[in-house]
Design a protein around this nucleic acid. Structure first.
Lengths: 206, 206
DNA sequence: AACCTAACTTAACAACGTTAAGTAATGGAG
DNA sequence: CTCCATTACTTAACGTTGTTAAGTTAGGTT
């Protein structure tokens, strides 16, 4: 069974070439800049060829983001070694933030744009697995903090959701409104740190 | 000077007709659904006619949002009568939230999408005026709270920015991710209330 | 009465996502 | 070896989109 595997490999290769070309366009100029025709030009195929590897443009770009977000998990792996839950929580927030600002177009598409969610078989991320799913990772930390009696609120889901919302709020306002000069923005690092500190203070048992 | 004023008035009338037609499309189906040709059809003009009243599609939709956001100010006028700063802050957050969820497409365009900001002469909102500018209103409340010694942080700008980010985080995640069933979302009201309560608790002097 | 200008229309352009129809190569079955 | 089906593409086109260039027409000004 030699030729079958070769074909499979070749197919995978051009799929990757498409993703790489698309990534370059998307990361620098966003969703609109990703054009079937421009991708095609880059990889020296016809635009139609792409449709044999991705259902449509949306599926392409989302596969791209989904894949790239696995990098975030690597950051989390480092953080996971810390013992103190509050320190861990802070570092998680910071890692999430750094990622969002390094890949603002990825972030926009995944967290600032409404979508029918990817069906599990299309997604490369296994939901619920803390090693791949950022929300699950966050919740596992909150679980721990609650178990240790650090928070006066026992609903880990609720706590996780507002912590996520808090950090997400800082990132997404930064991405969307960083050019609005009529607001006297404090430096991003200051805002992030203050947000996390304030939330933790508000959650902690008095 | 009769005819000159009549022409002026007629011009304003069709400008309003364009905005009304666009609003209907935009509010129900979002930016993409607003099409020069569909607007034109609605008002029974040619698509080109619109360009005599708005520079381009983007200017049109943003003029629309800008105008509609003045409604938010009305909500604030009510809240402004409350004396207790913390109660006022809570109500402000709730009003902001309600507005974002009633006009998700407006909200998306204005706060979840990067844009070069509208130049002041294009904008209907007077920035810095608490009666029209939501951020200025928020900051005036925070100023008050700080003056009364309620918060242990004297930078009103910083405090306002994380309060805004917190509430914005809840709204924008709701708009973008409400369909993601793999998250066990707590009810929106619970999340909002808990966010505001937690932030206030974290900001308050211990 | 001649003219100018503002407010439009018609027709077109370029770019987009997507698809229908055709082609060339490959590899297995008889 | 031949036939044939499948795979992987290309070419050409369709229907949209925002936007603009080039006319047209009506009304007020001189």
């Amino acid at each position: 069974m030699g030729p079958k595997e070769r074909r499979e490999r070749e197919r995978e290769e051009i799929r990757t070439a498409i993703l790489d070309a698309a990534r370059e366009l998307f990361a620098s100029d966003g969703y609109e800049a990703v054009t079937m025709r421009r991708i095609a030009e880059k990889i020296e195929y016809s635009p139609t060829a792409i449709y044999f590897h991705f259902r449509d443009k949306d599926a392409l770009v989302r596969a791209l983001c989904d894949h790239d977000f696995l990098q975030l998990a690597q950051q989390f792996a480092e953080v996971a070694t810390i013992e103190d839950p509050l320190e861990k929580l802070t570092r998680t927030g910071m890692a999430y933030l750094r990622f969002g600002l390094e890949y603002p177009n990825h972030y926009r598409l995944m967290f600032m744009t409404p979508h029918p969610p990817l069906s599990p078989e299309e997604s490369e991320v296994k939901h619920g697995n803390p090693e791949e799913d950022a929300y699950a990772f966050l919740k596992s930390i909150v679980d721990e903090a609650i178990a240790k009696g650090i928070f006066h609120e026992s609903d880990a889901e609720l706590v996780s959701q507002i912590v996520w919302a808090g950090v997400h709020g800082v990132i997404s306002l930064q991405i969307a409104k960083c050019n609005d000069a009529w607001i006297d923005w404090r430096p991003l690092e200051q805002r992030s740190a203050f947000m996390i500190r304030t939330l933790i203070a508000g959650l902690a048992k008095e």
